[in-house]
Design a protein around this nucleic acid. Structure first.
Length: 424
RNA sequence: GGAGAGGUGGCUGAGUGGUCGAAAGCAGCGGUUUGCUAAACCGUCGUAGGGGGAAACUUCUACCGGGGGUUCGAAUCCCCCCCUCUCCGCCA
């Protein structure tokens, strides 16, 4: 959500910058609606002022004992006029809000201009893809062979795009989550929180999933409870409608949660394995910062996520998304992509974004400097997605005999050095 | 889930149909005086939106948990919902 006043007064410049994003942005429509809306407000408010004035008069006259029947009739007529006007205004206002909410964030000046993922720019690379002296398998084969991943029964229990982890597979997921949380809380300075996994629609509106992306979410029937698509939602909303002290910032939080995504539009991609599931687990990093420190904190947050992959010895690269590939709320995004032998390519495992004040304005998260309250900048990214890290370990550390070697740093969490095949 | 009580400005807390955007106190901010880690006194002090103005500012509208309704007029009356507290039930 943009600041209306700023948006109006910098219309041309913003329009130019937004044109570098994908999708048509109806800026002219915005301008027309803005004019229409203001005219409607003005008209309605003038009538309201008259009505209020009349009502006060009637009160006075009544106390003096004068008959006010006629004047009451007049005011009632005004009230009816107002009701009709407000009905129109409501429609205009709604259109206006939808349009305003639909306008994406302004890309930071350091973001490369481009149309699609092909125009993203690689900024670093770590490690090299492993060389196998055998044909490496994908996790959807390895998992069942190792007896740690069961697709058939997950389908029976729930349906497609859910997974059942067994034995060392389940433990590996848990080990990863604990490892992530330990590193971030003990070494990177994040405070762990454990938020609700169900949120109300106000929270989803605050972080921008609603109203536009309701179709990507699961909702509990007959309630206003939604399953979270990412911990970003409950964690960012911790401070919704609050004013923080400047000295508190930056606030650095991390949270483990399962995530639930309907993702109706994504069918056809990543259909095999557990790359794209309706439920997955991850540890999320969230920061609330002052505006002047947000880009530095974005770099640090991205490095904190990369650090996990380095410790696990997984090859990855980091790309900065171009203007055409960024999410609507983001001003700058780094994607961290891990190497997956099963796909013979890099696959996104974390997306680290600076939203600047875009989310904070929607969610009403401010901070105080002296007397004035300003909006904070919000930053978040996965640190990391447990499911995809699981896949990366199974695929990158697979051996010729079908076993998987556990990376050193995970052994204390696993109590084993190797996962060996067993039947389910 | 059942019974009861309650939700008012940053906080505490008055206010049961008109002069209430809302008393009072505290905190905050500006100042005076005194002066040593403070007190007293005076003033000021909500948010959002529309109009006017270069700006300081000014004017109007809305907001007393949320949404409807009654009325010329609602913080105050009616209905629905949400939340908090106490007791009971049920459970992890």
């Amino acid at each position: 959500m943009h600041d209306l006043t700023f948006f109006r007064s910098n219309f041309e410049r913003i329009a130019e910058r937004l044109a570098t994003r994908s999708g048509a942005i109806d800026l002219e429509g915005f301008r027309d609606l803005d004019v229409k809306r203001r005219a409607a407000i003005s008209q309605s408010e003038q009538l309201k002022a008259r009505k209020n004035q009349e009502s006060v008069e009637i009160g006075k006259l009544k106390r003096e004992g004068t008959d006010t029947t006629e004047r009451q009739k007049e005011v009632r007529a005004i009230a009816e006029q107002i009701a009709a006007l407000d009905e129109e205004l409501k429609t205009v206002e709604q259109q206006f809000q939808e349009l305003l909410a639909g306008i994406p964030n302004i890309p930071h000046e350091s973001v490369p201009v481009g149309h699609s993922a092909d125009d993203n720019v690689e900024v670093r690379r770590s490690g090299a893809p492993p060389q196998f002296d055998f044909e490496p398998k994908a996790h959807w084969d390895l998992g069942p062979e190792l007896g740690i991943l069961d697709f058939a029964r997950a389908v029976k229990i729930t349906g497609a795009r859910f997974a059942l982890y067994w034995g060392m597979g389940a433990r590996l997921e848990r080990a990863l989550v604990n490892f992530f949380l330990d590193v971030h809380t003990r070494e990177h300075g994040y405070t762990e929180v454990l938020p609700p996994f169900l949120v109300n629609s106000a929270s989803l509106y605050g972080t921008g999933q609603l109203p536009k992306f309701a179709g990507d979410l699961f909702k509990c029937e007959g309630t206003d409870f939604w399953l979270i698509p990412t911990a970003e939602v409950p964690v960012t909303n911790i401070y919704r409608d609050e004013t923080l002290e400047a000295e508190q910032l930056p606030i650095k939080l991390c949270a483990y949660t399962p995530c639930f995504r309907s993702e109706a539009g994504s069918y056809g991609r990543d259909v095999r394995g557990i790359i794209r599931q309706h439920q997955f687990q991850k540890v999320e990093l969230v920061k609330f910062t002052r505006p002047e420190q947000s880009y530095e904190e974005l770099e640090k947050l991205t490095a904190d996520a990369e650090d996990i992959l380095q410790r696990l010895g997984l090859p990855f690269r980091t790309v900065v998304l171009c203007t055409g590939d960024m999410g609507a709320s983001s001003a700058k995004t780094y994607d961290i992509e891990v190497w997956l032998p099963g796909q013979n390519g890099y696959k996104e495992i974390s997306s680290c974004s600076n939203f600047e004040g875009f989310q904070a304005r929607r969610a009403g998260i401010r901070y105080k400097t002296g007397k004035k309250a300003e909006f904070v900048h919000t930053i978040n990214g996965s640190g990391l997605a447990a499911g995809r890290t699981w896949v990366a370990i199974i695929e990158n550390y697979q051996q010729k005999d079908g076993s998987v070697v556990i990376p050193e740093v995970l052994r204390p969490y696993m109590g084993e050095e190797v996962i060996r095949p067993r039947s389910l």
